[in-house]
Design a protein around this nucleic acid. Structure first.
Lengths: 244, 244
DNA sequence: TATTATTGTGTCGTATTGACACATTGTAAA
DNA sequence: TTTACAATGTGTCAATACGACACAATAATA
């Protein structure tokens, strides 16, 4: 890693949300030789936009390019990284000795959250630092380094909040999905049961769903309608500030 | 300025909103020897939290301590500062020669916005860099350095958005105010006319206003009731995420 | 063919919201 | 002293949105 081209004391961490088996999941890296996990992240080159670098991290980790990605908070507490952290990374050979100085800095970390379609993410390649990359259930996160738990929690809070004003799902669901699947997504993110019939009414009122005319068969019981998002109207709704 | 204790490449900019004469205003610094203005801001010491430093900036500029202050965006475009900016500052003797190196860096700037009560801000002291500090009308901003216009605009956008979910006014209005004044504040921020009677109903429904029993006299026409905020209920409303 | 769980659809009462009208009041003009 | 005026306090009405709830349709399974 060529650290001298990076802006010092500054890092990016991405909370990548996916949805699978009615479960909200977060993309996490398992550190080598250590029973800890971390968020995919990186540093910012002097000659790159910060947002650009975040997109790059996502592309490298998910293979996806056109991703829903938002900054949500700068984590800037002075003691967010314990003094022993870099030393431990060196001791356990997670990073090489010559990188210790770089990792021993104080870091401000800009948190991004991303919404991606679980199935479209190519099985990501581990990198020199991590031995594995996995979708971990949001509800039972493993042990995370530094303040990454806080970052994930704050990302989730923000996502919950945004959910009220923005349609969400386009980036988390496959191209075609049932109303129940969409509802399950909302229920999972909000961690709250919603009334099936009222939910349907509300979603249809948004006028962002297209009935594909198809149905999902094979699932036993009545075959549900498959919907897709009307991209154009979806984007319009994202723009609009239909409030007050 | 002792720059070697600062985190490099990183700055803070604060958009301080005030409300006066039915007008939204922003606190701006006039640069010495240059017909440009800038946002009050600063740098972050290695041994301070970022948020702490933002609070410090506000305290120094407004004399206020317990301020409504929120991070809202990190401005991280690689070319946000023109290459000639630092040189110009030196040439015009805004900063001394030895600071040129510091100001010649690439900077990421974390934007904060603050809501303060216009009248409570002590007439702020200019500093070595600025020759004046003024409340400028948001609607007719002067020429600002770097991307500070963007920062102000984005802060305003965020404020507008937050206005829909959070009561605002406690920090922008004097302790006692009329319903019309509160409405004028909302109309100014939202840049939109609101129905007087519906606005009143909505505000009273929030149950955060206390009728002080007093009236404002002398203003010609019927004397309006003076309200104050019920701090406790106000804070409760700020916490609650009464959505979906 | 009957069962069953899931899905599509609708109703009903209530709360919220937008549009609008009228009576009240305090100062300034007559 | 009276009157005019303009802003304020209060209320109505219809349209809409929302929460709680019931029933019919359907497709695999038994």
């Amino acid at each position: 890693m060529q650290t001298d081209n990076f802006i010092p004391c500054f890092s990016i961490d991405c909370v990548v949300f996916g949805f699978h088996n009615n479960e909200l999941r977060v993309l996490l890296l398992k550190l080598k030789n250590l029973d800890k996990w971390m968020l995919p992240g990186g540093f910012v080159s002097y000659d790159k936009d910060v947002d650009e670098e975040a997109i790059k991290v996502l592309r490298e980790r998910t293979g996806l390019d056109d991703i829903f990605l938002r900054q949500f908070h700068l984590f800037g507490k002075k003691d967010r990284i314990s003094k022993s952290h870099a030393q431990e990374m060196v001791d356990k050979k997670v990073i090489s000795e010559d990188l210790k100085k770089w990792f021993d800095q104080r870091f401000l970390s800009l948190g991004y959250y991303a919404l991606v379609e679980y199935s479209k993410v190519k099985k990501p390649e581990p990198d020199p630092v991590s031995e594995a990359i996995e979708w971990c259930p949001f509800s039972e996160l493993p042990d995370l380094v530094i303040d990454h738990v806080d970052i994930v929690q704050k990302a989730h809070q923000r996502l919950k909040k945004e959910l009220n004003f923005q349609p969400i799902g386009l980036n988390l669901l496959p191209d075609e999905f049932t109303m129940s699947e969409l509802q399950a997504l909302y229920e999972t993110i909000l961690n709250k049961q919603l009334d099936r019939r009222n939910f349907r009414r509300k979603m249809l009122a948004f006028d962002i769903l297209k009935n594909t005319g198809k149905k999902r068969t094979g699932n036993a019981h009545k075959s549900p309608i498959l919907y897709s998002f009307d991209q154009e109207k979806y984007q319009q709704l994202l723009q609009a500030d239909h409030l007050f």
